[in-house]
């Protein structure tokens, strides 16, 4: 297990290097003069030169990349063109809210998705099953930003139950996390249903039932344990979708997270911040995927990492 972890981390190194190279390139492949593009159309020549110097755009490319990596290792991602603050600081203060939002959504996905899926699988082709499977299909097709607007319209504009925007207590978290979780809940519910139905057809379930095991025990103890492995995999793989959805959800609800920071920085052409925020999200995603891989082994001891 330990050697597997080490190997996975080693394989992640070229991927992460590639990610840093792409992020590094964002600024360098801007059409025309990158310094001019970053400074904006109305910038003075003096300001353009300052941007060029600050980012070292006048140096040879490999020196620039080496400097970029060196800065990265020291946690130095440059300064925001908009606020002048260090990028690391800007990204970090925005990172916690995003973590809070995705964690809450992941929690909802696990609890709601698996519960709805189990209930559907225990009563397949019932009215409940059809209704929940249709709802989940709708959940998968709805654009996350529109769902957010509709929930906002209903629960904050009309009913006044939850605040429409911003971050604060638990009440602020409800609408954004439900919005972000919706498509994942739908996917996990459908997946749980089909996986559990497949397991319930296995012979050892028939054996358990024949022995006179209560149906609830057959489902929850015998079947669910084996169905759980692929389900957890899917939940883990949803993390990327959640990070991606957070970009849109945070914009709808004015949630001060990293996703919104990316969007705002793209609109403001604040390239150092774009680089920092994108890098953090991608690195996070790479490590989460490794963690999900390791989790299989914990749930299913039959999997050997060798």
């Amino acid at each position: 297990m330990l050697s597997y972890l080490v190997r996975r981390l080693l394989v992640a190194i070229p991927t992460l290097l590639g990610v840093t190279f792409i992020v590094f390139s964002i600024v360098r492949v801007l059409p025309g003069d990158p310094a001019q593009a970053m400074a904006g159309v109305h910038a003075t020549q003096e300001y353009i030169e300052r941007v060029r110097k600050e980012l070292g755009l006048d140096l040879p490319m490999h020196v620039q990349y080496a400097r970029f990596l060196g800065g990265l290792l020291r946690g130095d991602l440059g300064r925001s063109l908009r606020t002048g603050l260090p990028v690391g600081e800007e990204v970090w203060t925005r990172f916690i809210p995003t973590l809070e939002l995705t964690a809450a959504s992941l929690f909802l996905t696990l609890i709601l998705g698996i519960t709805v899926g189990i209930l559907s699988a225990t009563k397949p082709y019932s009215l409940y099953d059809h209704a929940s499977m249709f709802l989940s299909l709708a959940g998968l097709s709805m654009p996350v930003f529109w769902l957010g607007l509709m929930l906002m319209l209903l629960f904050s504009v009309r009913l006044g139950w939850f605040p429409a925007a911003g971050r604060g207590g638990l009440r602020h978290l409800v609408l954004p996390s439900v919005t972000l979780a919706a498509s994942s809940v739908a996917l996990v519910a459908r997946f749980t249903r089909s996986t559990l139905l497949e397991v319930l057809r296995q012979e050892y379930i028939t054996t358990a039932r024949a022995k006179g095991v209560r149906e609830s025990r057959a489902i929850f103890v015998h079947a669910l344990r084996n169905a759980l492995i692929p389900i957890v995999t899917i939940v883990g793989l949803r993390f990327g979708a959640l990070l991606s959805g957070a970009v849109l959800t945070e914009t709808v609800f004015a949630w001060p997270g990293v996703g919104r920071l990316v969007v705002d920085s793209v609109s403001a052409r604040d390239y150092p911040v774009i680089q920092g925020a994108v890098l953090v999200i991608a690195a996070c995603f790479v490590f989460i995927n490794i963690a999900v891989d390791l989790l299989y082994g914990v749930i299913n001891p039959r999997i050997r990492y060798d």
Binding site: T15, I22, V23, L30, G245, V266, V278
Partner: peptide, 18 residues
């Protein structure tokens, strides 16, 4: 692998940023 490290819409946003 590298391109897939940018989850979902993020890769598209990176391209738009450029």
């Amino acid at each position: 692998d590298i391109l897939l490290a940018f989850p979902g819409i993020l890769l598209a946003i990176v391209v738009v940023a450029i």
